[in-house]
Design a protein around this nucleic acid. Structure first.
Lengths: 243, 243
DNA sequence: CAGTGGTCTAGACCACGAA
DNA sequence: TCGTGGTCTAGACCACTGG
């Protein structure tokens, strides 16, 4: 039986510290396999729920990997991925010291096409909100923004004045986003985009496709078209953490 | 008594979805106060541990704020920015179940142009490493990767076999990246890109410009050109899983 | 004081992987 | 089949807040 320190912190925190210390000193370093939950229960004299919580939190923090039916292992060094930050376009333009203005071309309810209904993962056909807005930087159109919005989550979307509040701001205020999907591609401008952005048909555009979720429900689907010559998505990012 | 959906997901996930949906639809929006744990236990017909776990996870994800002795509240809206994850292209291709191969076109030391030296923030003119690699997905060229590498940080870059190890992997291994800058734009393919990617001159390409830092020193500068019709940068990201 | 969230337990059933 | 982790419950005690 191993004694945990007699401090004021919760038991599961002590268990976490105990495990992290043993990882650090390499005690389980041989095959990187930890004792099973039941073994920890026996050796530490705490309940399984407490051990489990400690292991679960260390797993979600990236220190451990758990496989049902197999065991718990020390996670390999962190995966190599890089994050890009995408900002609200209105805020971004203002931050650069330029003036932002938007024109609302469409704001309506509509029946989704079959493809859209599929993207929303709707079981039934229900009507959705649809908006098309052009965003200007110093009176030059830089982004054409087409949005489809789930009325179940954001009921009054069609009654807003989006020349005053940016669509993005309004949506973020109204519903928490739990997941975001982005797809970025480069496409030639079609007739509509060319017209609204004031560029030639066929010239290069950035297309940013975005879906957002609230819980298991698709909240919004957006198609953001940027005039390629006038706009770049940029970001500088510091992978902060460790602990 | 409220019915939770009859899906395969764990109960606490259903409770989380239920709560997020109710936040989204503004049911508790008045004073932003949620029902107490015991009220949720009663109305959902699950145990308090399960409700508590759902609330705890939503709290650590930043959606809720809990005060002992007071109650649970909806957190104020989070800062409005969205992150896109950019993965190592080789890993990404393999993960999709396709085959990856690369051809090294150039691997040399060179004197930087004035512009490059400026980007590296060099005080003096020193030579740097330069590589050009084409990445193939199922024998179709999808990315042209031009890299400039600071020899002070990565001494033996020019002696590696980048058909075996991806440049990205090698660099991540050799030096810790503390900061990354990305700029994404859409450009028409120039002659060189068109030739190596096997596309027409002038067709749309995604251009990803990247600089990485180790501390205050610029480690690498990369120019990644993607054939627009063949490749999209995509990602699905959960804010809840970060930080 | 009553009500809130925070923690902890003992015991149970399940899905999965390996022998 | 057995051991693993994943989930869930009922009940308990605690610390904290407010009236």
């Amino acid at each position: 039986m191993i004694d945990l320190p007699d401090t004021a912190s919760p038991l599961y925190e002590k268990v976490k510290d105990y495990i992290l210390t043993n990882i650090g000193t390499g005690r389980w370093g041989k095959d990187r396999k930890l004792p099973s939950e039941n073994e920890l229960v026996a050796s530490l004299g705490v309940s399984r729920m407490t051990v489990h919580r400690a292991l679960r939190e260390l797993t979600s923090a990236g220190f451990l990997i758990r496989l049902q039916g197999v065991g718990t292992f020390i996670a390999p060094p962190r995966p190599q991925s890089t994050l890009i930050e995408i900002n609200n376009i209105a805020a971004e333009i203002v931050e650069r010291g330029n003036s932002h203005r938007s024109e609302v071309l469409v704001l309506e309810t509509m029946m989704p096409t079959k493809e859209l209904a599929l993207s929303f993962e709707f079981a039934k056909r229900v009507s959705i909100y649809h908006s098309v807005v052009v965003n200007f930087e110093n009176d030059l159109p830089v982004q054409l923004e087409e949005r489809f919005v789930n009325p179940g989550l954001i009921p009054d979307y069609d009654k807003q004045d989006f020349t005053k509040t940016a669509t993005y701001d309004y949506l973020m205020q109204k519903t928490p986003v739990t997941e975001v999907e982005h797809i970025i591609s480069a496409i030639p401008a079609d007739k509509e985009a060319a017209q609204h952005l004031g560029i030639d048909v066929g010239s290069c555009c950035l297309l940013l496709h975005r879906r957002t979720w609230t819980g298991a429900i698709v909240a919004t689907i957006s198609k953001l078209t940027y005039a390629g010559s006038r706009y770049s998505l940029g970001s500088r990012y510091s992978p902060s953490k460790a602990s």
